[in-house]
Every structure is written in structure tokens, then in C-alpha cells.
Nucleic acid binder design. Sequence first.
DNA 1: TTTACTGTTCACCA
DNA 2: GTGGTGAACAGTAA
Length: 278
Amino acid sequence: MPELPEVETMKRILEPQVRERKITELVVHRPEVLAHPTQVLFQDRVVGTVFTGMGRRGKYLLFYLSNHAVITLHLRMTGQILVTPQDFPEEKHTHVIFKLDNGSELRFIDTRRFGRLWLINENEKDTFTGIHKLGLEPFDPECNADYLIQALGKRRKTVKVCLLDQTVVAGIGNIYSDEILHASKIHPGRPANSLTYEEWCVLAETISAVLETMIEKNHMTPDEYLAGLGKAYRNTPSFQVYGRKEQACFSCGTLLERMVIGGRSSCYCPECQPGEAQ
DNA sequence: TTTACTGTTCACCA
DNA sequence: GTGGTGAACAGTAA
């Protein structure tokens, strides 16, 4: 569900809430969400340690611990992560609770149970989480037109499917691929190898610009985040095309269209985003 | 009752 | 090898 801007938003909200807090207890309702290692080892290595900070890589959220272990979380479709007071009503589908030494709790909630937690060591070669397969961060200066051309320029797949490829650029999902392509004026169904050099340049700029803008728009206080139960992690969803099928394009007024690309629902403006033939 | 769904991986087929 | 499709994971909501 959450893509890079939302995961970054969560990181910014949670980090001050967990930093320097000690984990006093780990409650696991659904052991299957702990992908690695086993529940017992997970518990042993986590309880008694202190959060030293947080990070993000693509759509993964990272919690650094004082014993150099890293709790790695991917929320997939419906995962939620939030800090609550001790006595806060427990949401249905709460699977893991980290109890903290100030009485608050870090809770992992996931309706569909696709989300996963891993515990790895900072210096361990991580082949469990999938992070080692990720491509560049969108804000990496090296994530420029030349990089995109080198990685994708010869692919015959649609540019939309290419943007969703986490091994090239990490963190873009179905919503922001549509938003980025609309802002770039590129039709989602265009084969990647049909893009001009100028279009790759626009796309490279737009990827970071759109994600950056959305991170800023998502900004909210911890109280607002808690009030939304960790589900309302988009403060002002101001999507230009996503979910706006048959509504007017904000740029030109043309009715937006929807098509399935790579098995994913895709919205675009037939006027602003010239067709596949071009 | 049926369908779609913001993620990822894998099997299968052309 | 490349690319496309559909299923699987599991639950909710329209």
C-alpha cells in the first residue's frame, strides 16, 4: 500500500518516538509475519536493546538497534506501523507489539498479512529481505537520465512496468508511477525503448520531484498519525491521475482514461500523455 | 455474490 | 533470454 513517500513519512513520525527507547517486551500474535529469523531468535535479539535510529530503503523501513541488529519492515499492501500509548485500544489484525520502556508501544498491524518483518545484523550479508536487489534511491544524484537509459533504454516493456521495477529505481509503486508519467507527459503504455533522450531527462527529473513533493504534502504530526491509526498516512492525497478515471485532467480538462498495464490499473490523460504509437 | 485492490514473487506460456 | 498473464498470499469494501 504505502510507497516511498508514505514510508518516508512514517520514518519521520516514528523516529523521534522510538529513538533511545528500550524494548522491554515483544508480543507476537502472528509468528508468520516474522520472516527471519525464528520467533524465538527474533525475541532474544530484540528484547533489552535500544532503538538508535531509523532509516528507509525503497519501501522498506529500517529500525536500528543498539546491538547492531536491524529490524527491517515491508508493509506490502495493507501494513500499518505506529506508536501508541499502552492503553490504546488494540486494532484488529495487530500481529506484533514492541513494548517500550516509557510505556508506549510500537505496533505492527496488517489486515491482509502480506507485510513482513526481518531481523538482520548490520554486518551480516543480507539476502533475506530483498533489499540487496533494490536499485538506486530516486533521490540519488546518480539516478539520472543516463542511468535510466542504461538500465531501461533497450527494454521493450512498457515504461510503466519499468518504473515499477524495484531493481532499477526503488520505491515507486502503482500510484506514483501513474503520477510521475502524467507529470512527465509520457503515456504509461509506451515501450521503454521508444522514449527519446529528452523524455528520459524529463522522467528522471520528475521522479524525484513528484516523490519529494508528496513527502512534503504527507507531513503530519504524530497525533494526526495516531488519530488515523497509521492508515491515514497521506495528509492531503492530491493525486493528478491515480483513481481519477473518467474525471477531468487538471491540466487540460480531457477525461482521464484507465487501462491495465502489467496487470495493474493505470490512469492517464490521453491528451497530455501522447499515445503508444508515438 | 462478485470484483477490485497502493506489493512482490513465481509458474507457465508464447 | 524476453515479455505477458495469472495465481498466490488474505481480507475488506464497493
